[in-house]
Design a protein around this nucleic acid. Structure first.
Lengths: 242, 242
DNA sequence: TGTTAATTTTGACATAGATCAAGCCTTAAG
DNA sequence: CTTAAGGCTTGATCTATGTCAAAATTAACA
């Protein structure tokens, strides 16, 4: 495991960030936007494998991903591990920590990544002054709830291949929103990490990928993935309830 | 399915509610508490089986459960259903709707229940004035995220009997907090609903209950459940990872 | 109160996915 | 460039849980 590069505390400007529409799509005046800029600092680069925060760390800030890719995972007492999400540029992580003032999961960089730090106390202060910002914060929190509940649906009621199809379609859609190809991208995580996220063993993930490939729905070679038939993938979900 | 009783719009007083410490444990002055009271109205009784809100309904309010028991569930396109939670008195539901201004799950009363309606716009307004209330709202939202992620862990990595043990211990603890017996209580939901929540079939739930009973950890007869050995139940989780 | 419908339990059997194992491939390090 | 370590695939087998079915119990309702 690497250490993050030293914190240079570079000032960040949301106002000029090209992820603005994704990350904080709030209608603010110039002067209001400046106040937001003042809040947020760019933290140094997190190298592949390094840890943004750990379970148990004091909660102080949310983090907006500028570039790169993270996973979040929880570990219970007996060492069992569950990947709870994969996060990409423009997404905000750390909300698990608000409740108890301590993080309840680990956030690990899956490639070299940059994040913006948003001190939460100051975000609360500012959001009392700026109702659109307040509303946006609430939406982000709620979105996370909805997202998690959809994963519960996936884990509770889909079979292996459906879970994988849902996972790939979700990635596809998120790449598309960011202006990348929805049909051709690199997987940033191992089969084991995909398996943990989907409640499957890595062998099952591998077999399901192979099977989707046999069916001409995808092409997969190591980490590079090509979706050959989006609608076919969609159809391969929802075949039959478990 | 019954209709809810007509909305009498009774005024509620959080200030005198005996669930206050559970529901809104916020340190407010008397005058501030009055402003909170003004916000909240008691809705009529929801009979067993009736629906508090449905997926797709416009989101307007959060609901605090005064008495009774609810389940929340999502249904995907192909009719698959997943119970996402069971909620009891003092708990707040409806947060799924904030993100998109529409609810994304159904909330169904599992017994005759009363709720307090908290109009969300007005809650936002008031929480801009009252920082402790704002902080509490954020904690509630975050707590829901943490809760959901722990269910992901359960669904993704535990075997049937462990899931059931975790479920029973969770209920036990929540009853304890409310001053009820942690070792003897009624299940308010069917085996099928438990199964949906835990990602299991009802037969598996039934068998796992029988098996825990054979092991002298619980006594179960229909909906009445007695925990004979809390520590044994705890131990029966975390035996072996899947 | 009697009748029907829903819920629960239990058994027999089927199967999706886990486990174990081997070999290959890719990437990182020396 | 070589070697080692981690990651991936595929096959053979095992097992937890699903599926199907029947009977028993309980709850709902006329």
């Amino acid at each position: 495991m690497h250490k993050p590069a030293p914190n240079n505390s570079l000032k960040t400007a949301c106002s000029t960030c090209n992820l603005r529409e994704l990350c904080l799509p709030v209608n603010l005046s110039n002067i209001e936007m400046t106040r937001l800029d003042d809040l947020i600092t760019r933290k140094g680069v997190y190298r592949h494998g390094s840890i943004l925060y750990r379970s148990g760390d004091k909660f102080q800030a949310l983090y907006a991903i500028r570039t790169g890719f993270f996973k979040t995972q929880i570990l219970n007492e007996d060492g069992r591990e569950q990947v709870t999400g994969f996060q990409m540029a423009g997404e905000i992580i750390g909300m698990d920590g608000i409740n108890s003032d301590a993080h309840t999961c680990d956030a690990v960089a899956l490639e070299d990544s940059e994040v913006c730090e948003i001190p939460f106390n100051r975000l609360e202060d500012l959001s009392r002054d700026l109702p659109p910002l307040q509303r946006h914060l609430h939406r982000i929190l709620s979105r996370e709830i909805v997202r998690d509940q959809n994963i519960m649906l996936l884990l509770g009621s889909m079979r292996a291949e459906e879970r994988l199809a849902a996972f790939l379609l979700n990635l596809s859609q998120r790449f598309a929103v960011r202006g990348y190809s929805p049909t051709s991208f690199q997987l940033r995580m191992t089969r084991q990490e995909i398996g943990s996220y989907l409640g499957l063993k890595l062998e099952t993930v591998s077999r399901a990928l192979s099977h989707l490939q046999e069916g001409k729905l995808i092409n997969v070679r190591n980490r590079s993935l090509e979706i050959l038939c989006l609608s076919g993938l969609q159809a391969s979900m929802g075949k039959r309830a478990r």
